[in-house]
């Protein structure tokens, strides 16, 4: 037990655990909307654009979050604009806009050659990289995001499910999309230093997809995804310390393991339900005892009407 608690004696570890808890819950929450909108790779793209922005910002002596934030937001708004006409789908728009912004960052790095700042933490996530400023940024972003998702629950849900109808019913879908782009960008930038640019897409997608396997209710999916995200963040960060591996990688691998575990449980559960269903029907036929002298057949509906099978629920 002491060995388990030992890392909590270090301040940097407590910071990292707190950061990963918030980032996990934050990404889990936002991820639900991303997955259901069919734009799973938006997180991947935006984090690359934000990375380009961070590099540009560094050359202009700006704060990491200012450069990343401005570029990330511009990229998110551009993606919205490009997809508006309907001719270019969101996956293509993400590919064009965010790669161009990332390329800008790479071009600046390669041109400047001598860079005193290391961007390893932003690229791969770093357990040692979580500063007080990072914690503050993540906490503010988490609170803003949760507040917006809470108070915009209805328009966000409707415009995610059926944007055309939402518009007709009086939801200002353009504003909802803009608000969503802002909180998504904030979430991506807030998470970058913990999970890293290369791993952020998985942190956004995995908890949501795992939660989707567990429920058919939207509100429950939001809650489950947040909890799974938080567990993934904390578990992954602990493993990162234990095995001395980049935090982004361990968080993603831990999330993937949870996804596989839930998938396996769901698979076994479905098999058992199917078996139970078949077994019930077999019993139905065997217990249907009467004189078969008459030449007739029983339809499935007749058998069900005589003895309905046990009620089963899939969720």
């Amino acid at each position: 037990m002491n060995a388990f608690l030992e890392p909590f004696g270090y301040e940097f570890f407590r910071h990292s655990m707190l950061a990963s808890l918030m980032v996990g819950a934050l990404c889990g929450l936002i991820g639900v909307y991303i997955v259901l909108r069919g734009m799973s790779y938006i997180g991947h793209g935006l984090s690359h654009a934000a990375f380009g922005g961070a590099v540009v910002g560094f050359t202009l002596n700006l704060n990491f979050y200012v450069g990343a934030g401005v570029m990330g937001l511009v990229a998110a708004l551009l993606i919205n604009q490009v997809t508006k006409g309907g001719k270019i789908k969101s996956d293509a728009a993400i590919g064009i806009v965010t790669t161009a912004f990332f390329a800008l960052g790479v071009a600046i790095i390669s041109h400047a050659r001598k860079f005193t700042k290391s961007f390893d933490a932003a690229l791969f996530g770093n357990i040692l990289g979580v500063t007080n400023d990072d914690l503050l940024v993540i906490a503010v972003v988490t609170i803003i995001t949760m507040g917006m998702v809470f108070f915009m629950y209805k328009p966000l849900l409707f415009s995610t499910f059926d944007p055309d109808a939402a518009n007709v019913f009086g939801i200002k879908t353009g504003w909802v999309q803009l608000a969503f782009s802002i909180i998504l960008t904030l979430a991506v930038i807030g998470s970058m230093n913990v999970v890293g640019v290369t791993m952020i897409a998985a942190t956004l997608i995995m908890p949501a997809v795992t939660a989707r396997m567990m429920t058919d209710s939207f509100s429950r999916m939001l809650i489950y995804s947040m909890i799974i995200g938080a567990i993934t963040g904390v578990g992954g960060m602990y493993l990162s310390y234990t095995f001395n591996v980049a935090s982004g990688a361990t968080i993603v691998l831990f999330g993937a393991s949870l996804f596989c575990l839930v998938g396996l449980i769901k698979f076994i559960q479905d098999k058992m339900l199917l078996h139970e269903h078949i077994h019930n029907h077999e019993t139905l036929v065997h217990t249907h005892s009467h004189d078969h002298h008459q030449d007739h057949e029983h339809t499935h509906a007749e058998l069900q009407a005589e003895a309905p099978p046990k009620k089963t629920t899939l969720t």
């Binding site: 259901l36 209805k154 328009p155 849900l157 409707f158 499910f161 059926d162 109808a165 939402a166 019913f169 009086g170 939801i171 989707r212 429920t215 058919d216 209710s217 939207f218 429950r220 999916m221």
Partner: peptide, 16 residues
């Protein structure tokens, strides 16, 4: 495949 129940769909009509 969207995770909503019939009740949640009907309630959307009252979201404004």
């Amino acid at each position: 495949s969207f995770p909503v129940t019939v009740e949640q769909v009907i309630l959307m009509g009252l979201y404004t």
